[in-house]
């Protein structure tokens, strides 16, 4: 190398861009405000504003004669919400959401466990796609597919007939509560479709939690004489629990608010979502609809609080 060459000239103040860049560098808060401004206006004002306006309406009531909203603060709408018929709807929905979440966890756990512990390399990527595609594929198409399956002339009936098991289906449909005149208009049908549609949301959080269980812990357990069942019960399951809870947040919340599945596949009994839809639409009782939406918000708030205490958010 030769002697010290003259330094390259430092960048000039390149017009407006240069001056603006200097300004942002000296005033990072201005830059932050510009970055955050648009999304905050959109989400903080438009979206949250709408939510609060809705919640506010639940403290108004509907005038029985004119059918117009009476803009005076009252708890009358909440009294109406707690009437027996409406409580029925709430209990039915929560029970369904709980059952769906439980069933989803049972079906999904082996998949997540396999993906976390045994799949590797290309197989792992394939597994990931095999979970992602059903997760992201069209909601309505999934519901539609089950309409095809559960129809009287559909594949399920055909399949059971081939196996000479139609009597089993008939016996099931004859049961109270879970039965009905056909699967597509019974709670059983609603339940199956709910599980099918919302189950994939649980896999990835559980898989992530399981992948964080160190293999040597499992080896240590079997080394200490634990049977596979004991290892599962005392080591794997407790460590995977936050992931299961994290995954269940989605499944539970989505089931709680769904109004399309029970409308298309199910009995005529309402779920919360349908009640909200009916109240704000045909019944024109927006305050009651708003009060109904408070129910899933409160339930999810409690659920999230509990999940946070269990450390489930670290698993997300």
């Amino acid at each position: 190398m030769t002697t010290v060459a003259e330094s390259f000239p430092l960048p000039e103040r390149r017009g407006t861009a240069g001056r603006l860049s200097d300004f942002f560098w000296r005033h990072p808060h201005v830059l932050l405000a510009i970055l955050l401004g648009p999304p905050l206006i959109w989400l903080g004002i438009v979206y949250l504003g709408s939510l609060f306006a809705l919640l506010l309406q639940s403290f108004f009531s509907i005038d029985d004669f004119s059918g117009l909203i009476n803009y005076e603060f009252t708890l009358a709408t909440y009294r109406q919400l707690l009437s027996e018929a409406n409580l029925d709807i709430i209990i039915r929905t929560v029970a369904m959401a709980a059952l769906v979440t439980l069933a989803s966890a049972v079906i999904v756990f082996p998949i997540a466990y396999y993906a976390a512990r045994y799949a590797r390399g290309k197989g792992k990527a394939l597994f990931y796609l095999a979970v992602m595609l059903p997760l992201w594929s069209s909601y309505l198409v999934k519901v539609y597919a089950w309409k095809l399956i559960l129809a009287k002339e559909g594949i399920l009936t055909w399949f059971l007939a081939k196996l000479n098991l139609l009597w089993l289906l008939d016996a099931w449909l004859a049961l109270p509560i879970v039965g009905g005149s056909s699967l597509s208009i019974s709670y059983t049908g609603t339940f199956i479709v709910f599980v099918y549609v919302w189950m994939p949301f649980m896999i990835l959080p559980i898989q992530a939690a399981l992948e964080r269980v160190p293999a040597n812990l499992i080896e240590a357990s079997s080394d200490l004489g634990g049977t596979p069942a004991q290892t599962f019960r005392h080591v794997i399951f407790p460590l995977a629990l936050p992931g299961i809870v994290a995954g269940s947040i989605f499944t539970f919340s989505l089931t709680l608010g769904d109004y399309i599945i029970p409308q298309i596949i199910g009995s005529s009994r309402l779920f919360i979502g349908q009640a909200v839809y009916a109240q704000q639409g045909t019944a024109g009782n927006v305050p009651l609809a708003a009060a109904f939406t408070v129910v899933p918000i409160v339930i999810m708030g409690a659920y999230l609080w509990m999940a946070k205490r269990m450390g489930a958010f670290d698993a997300l």
Binding site: L10, P11, S21, D22, R26
Partner: peptide, 9 residues
């Protein structure tokens, strides 16, 4: 002070 990194040699 107050000179951004991109204006220092």
């Amino acid at each position: 002070e107050g000179v951004p990194p991109y204006r220092r040699s």
